[in-house]
Simulated assay, not measured.
Amino acid sequence: MSGTTSAPEPHLPLPVELPLADEPGGTDVDLKTQMVRFIATGALSAVVDFGLYTLFLALGLPVYVAKSIGFIAGTTTAYLINRRWTFKAEPSRARFIAVVVLYAITFAVQVGLNSLMYNVFPDEWWKVPLAFVIAQGTATVINFVVQRAVIFKIH
């Protein structure tokens, strides 16, 4: 054989992906479809988040630790599903980094707001779920707006 072959350039691995087939359409999914899918994905992710949060509270972990674990698990679930199904976006390191930054911000909002509400509300049966819903709802609105307007427009 004549000629030279160069070794492929090393590259960073892409984030872990769910084994789902993308449908055609890219990021031009209409707003109504995105909202319905985002809400469905958010509901599943909230079950993961709240389930772990209450489990770890019952095991005696501090509220901010329990909420942090739940948030990380729920948010990871949401990103993986939203990237592939809600926004139908191709894998992108730039997008992944933008999502990490967004989730760091919403992490602070969610854990901080949840802790504030948890400490402000009286010690009643509804304290934990109401604090969770307020924090989750606030973070959900922030996430949808930023993901739709910015993150899933990154190529």
Results as ranks from 00 to 15, higher is better:
Leu59Val: 07
Ala40Asn: 12
Thr27Lys: 00
Leu55Pro: 04
Ala58Phe: 10
Pro62Glu: 10
Leu55Ala: 14
Phe56Pro: 00
Gly42Ser: 01
Gly42Ala: 06
Val47Ile: 14
Leu55Phe: 13
Val65Met: 12
Gly60Phe: 04
Phe56Tyr: 11
Ala46Lys: 00
Asp49Asn: 13
Lys32Ser: 11
Thr33Leu: 05
Gly42His: 06
Thr41Val: 10
Leu61Trp: 11
Val63Ile: 12
Lys32Gly: 08
Leu31Met: 11
Gly26Asn: 04
Ser45His: 01
Val65Lys: 05
Leu61Tyr: 13
Pro62Ser: 12
Gln34His: 05
Arg37Trp: 00
Ala66Thr: 04
Ala43Val: 14
Leu31Ser: 06
Tyr64Ile: 13
Lys67Asn: 15
Pro62Gly: 07
Ala58His: 14
Asp28Ile: 00
Ile39Met: 11
Lys32Met: 09
Asp49Tyr: 08
Ala43Lys: 06
Leu52Ala: 10
Thr41Gly: 14
Gly51Asn: 08
Ala46Thr: 08
Ala46Pro: 04
Thr54Val: 13
Val63Gly: 05
Ser68Gly: 15
Val63Asp: 14
Ala46His: 01
Gly42Ile: 01
Thr27Ser: 14
Leu57Cys: 02
Val65Trp: 09
Leu57Ile: 11
Ala58Lys: 14
Leu61Ala: 13
Met35Tyr: 07
Lys67Glu: 11
Phe38Tyr: 08
Thr54Arg: 14
Ala66Leu: 06
Ile69Leu: 15
Met35Cys: 09
Met35Lys: 02
Asp30Ile: 04
Phe56Gly: 07
Val48Ser: 09
Lys67Met: 12
Val29Cys: 03
Met35His: 05
Thr33Met: 01
Ala43Pro: 07
Phe38Cys: 02
Lys32Asn: 09
Asp28Gln: 14
Thr33Tyr: 03
Arg37Thr: 00
Thr33Cys: 02
Gly51Gln: 07
Ala43Gln: 11
Arg37His: 07
Ile39Gln: 06
Val36Thr: 12
Phe38Thr: 05
Thr41Cys: 13
Phe38Leu: 01
Arg37Tyr: 02
Thr41Ile: 07
Ala43Ile: 14
Val63Lys: 13
Val48Asp: 08
Gly51Pro: 00
Leu44Ile: 13
Leu44Phe: 14
Ser68Leu: 08
Gly51Leu: 02
Ala43Cys: 13
Leu31Arg: 11
Val48Pro: 02
Val63Cys: 08
Thr33Ala: 11
Thr41Lys: 04
Gln34Leu: 03
Pro62Cys: 07
Gly51Cys: 01
Gln34Tyr: 01
Phe56Asp: 03
Ser45Met: 01
Thr54Cys: 10
Leu52Met: 12
Thr54Leu: 09
Thr54Met: 12
Gln34Val: 02
Phe56Cys: 06
Met35Thr: 13
Tyr64Met: 13
Gly26Arg: 04
Asp28Trp: 11
Ala66Arg: 03
Ala46Arg: 03
Thr27Asn: 15
Ala43Asn: 10
Leu44Ala: 15
Leu61His: 12
Thr54Asp: 11
Leu52Lys: 07
Lys67Tyr: 08
